[in-house]
Design a protein around this nucleic acid. Structure first.
Length: 472
RNA sequence: GCCCCGUUCGUCUAGUGGUCCAGGACGCCGCCCUCUCACGGCGGAAACAGGGGUUCGAGUCCCCUACGGGGUGCCA
């Protein structure tokens, strides 16, 4: 089994997990599953100052919600610092790295000079050939990168990409406080963890070239690289926190469902012919690097909403109600609602769910269509509802209430029959009765089907709401 | 500045030299259905960035330009 696939998802806990990171995780996860391998999770917290416990928890929470699991315990990169330093020292001993005592200000100056001269703005290698014994004062350890030739990245998505080595300067692998940097840590960890495939955003492209150099210096075998295009915001710029990117859990709280998010993310930068809607199982079966494109995709809320609506409509009614109930606590307009729905109400909602769910794009939408259920009498009517209730309409409401009172069993078919009967008897189109009724029952002119509204409300409450308007 | 990558309808994409006067999906528009809003059905507008090559033939291959993105850190 030594040849089986091992991928990893390596978020840095400096903020929440956003759509871009989630998609990278999804691809790594699907790729591993597709090939019968595993995905490992590594928390890249070598930047101690910016890493937080909250961010780590947020990442776990996001992955869990999306339904992505990993093998074994998460690896916290900073705990492996000893190992990283050991490798740095090995590199130092072998002459593949050196101590650099250049001051930050000097380095900044040489960057400016290089840029002005039309050269890549890099560290110029001042300490590279200085006798190491002469090193005094604080120092960083730099990797001694080849200065000529080129490094070719054989990428499963990007193809062969050649980067001239002069573009790659001697990067820092150990900071002046002796802690390892990202560039060293990833290489050592990917190697030690037995990673076979590195699937990451293409913003890592040049990093990969530098990392390949480190692999070579260490004599380690390279993993397979696959750089996937980034997800951009609606404006075309890279998705980032300060750019309005939202956390995965923010989408959860807006009422999106993980199966829809997975489907949506899967189709961003990857395709399988004309297939648009597919299960996660199907996705895993289909997913491979060949289907990944090379151009960035923009995040499109409308598309996500459409998929979410689809998954809501296909969902089992009981399951959907459970998810709705779980979602209510984070729904801002539902704060005054009962913390637990009564069993009786749940039963009615499940029965009405087929009609309710087809008008909702999100769980929040679904909750909103139920606002009328929890309104308290006498209802406050909005303007449009108000104008609907003319004297004639109120008179008709009285007749309607009378008719409804005579219904024997309060169920949807009987309610519908009664109302259609009433309409036919008075020679009116159903709408002439339904609209005023809707206004009286919900206080608005838009709601689920009127028969469902009546059914959900139950006879006593419905008739009371109607009478409120006839006597007003 | 230097380097890398990208560019098919508004958006996600199909397309791997002929089957493409470019297909699907979302969105948009119209009609139908209809108790409102939706759902659903039907129909419509909508794209190969530009210019040079290669070839009998190019959305598909090559070059240039433009535009977009990414990188260029003792961040990851």
């Amino acid at each position: 089994m030594s040849s089986s696939v091992v991928t990893r998802f390596p978020p840095s806990p400096t903020g929440f997990l956003h759509i871009g990171g989630a998609r990278t995780a999804l691809f790594n996860w699907a790729f591993a599953k597709h090939h019968g391998g595993i995905m490992l999770l590594r928390i890249e917290d070598t930047d101690r100052g910016r890493s937080t416990k909250q961010a780590v928890d947020a990442i776990f929470e996001g992955l869990e919600w999306l339904g992505l699991d990993w093998s074994g315990e998460p690896v916290f990169q900073h705990r492996r610092a000893g190992r990283h330093v050991e490798i740095a020292e090995q590199l130092l001993r072998e002459g593949a790295a050196y101590r650099c005592t250049c001051a930050p200000g000097d380095i900044e100056a040489m960057r400016q000079r290089a840029r002005a001269a039309g050269r890549p703005q890099h560290y110029d290698g001042t300490c590279r050939n200085r006798p190491q014994s002469a090193a005094a004062g604080p120092y960083v350890v730099r990797f001694k990168a080849p200065q000529t030739g080129e490094t070719v990245i054989c990428d499963r998505v990007q193809g062969d990409v050649a980067i001239a080595n002069e573009q790659l300067d001697d990067l820092v692998i150990l900071r002046s406080d002796a802690t390892p940097t990202y560039m060293l840590s990833v290489v050592v960890d990917d190697h030690d963890m037995g990673i076979t495939h590195v699937i990451r955003g293409d913003d890592h492209m040049t990093n990969t070239a530098r990392q390949i150099l480190i692999y070579r210096a260490l004599g380690w075998a390279l993993p397979v690289f696959a750089h996937i295009p980034l997800i951009h915001g609606p404006d075309g710029a890279k998705l980032s926190k300060r750019h309005g990117a939202l956390s995965l859990t923010a989408y959860r709280d807006m009422g999106f469902v993980p199966e829809a998010m997975r489907n949506y993310l899967a189709r961003l930068g990857w395709s399988h012919g004309d297939d648009e809607i597919f299960s996660t199982e199907q996705f895993v079966r289909w997913f491979d690097l060949d289907g990944v494109g090379r151009s960035p995709a923009r995040f499109d809320m409308a598309r996500l909403e459409n998929l979410n609506a689809h998954y809501l409509r296909c969902m089992d009614d009981r399951e959907l109600l459970e998810r709705l109930a779980a979602h209510l606590p984070v729904t801002d307009f539902a704060t005054g609602w009962p913390s637990r729905l009564s069993l009786d109400l749940k039963q009615r909602l499940v029965a009405a769910m087929p009609a309710l769910k087809e008008r909702a794009k999100t769980l929040s939408d679904l909750a909103r269509t139920l606002e009328f259920v929890f309104a308290s009498r006498p209802l406050k009517l909005d303007d449009k509802a108000q104008t609907l209730l003319t004297a004639d309409a109120r008179a008709m409401l009285g007749e309607t209430a009378d008719k409804l009172e005579r219904i024997e069993v309060w169920e949807r078919a009987a309610i519908e029959a009664a109302l259609r009967d009433l309409a036919a008897a008075s020679g009116l189109k159903l709408g002439r009765i339904a609209q005023p009724l809707r206004a009286a029952l919900t206080g608005t002119t838009v709601s689920p089907g009127i028969f469902d509204v009546l059914y959900i409300l139950q006879r006593d409450e419905a008739i009371a709401r109607i009478r409120d308007q006839t006597t007003a």
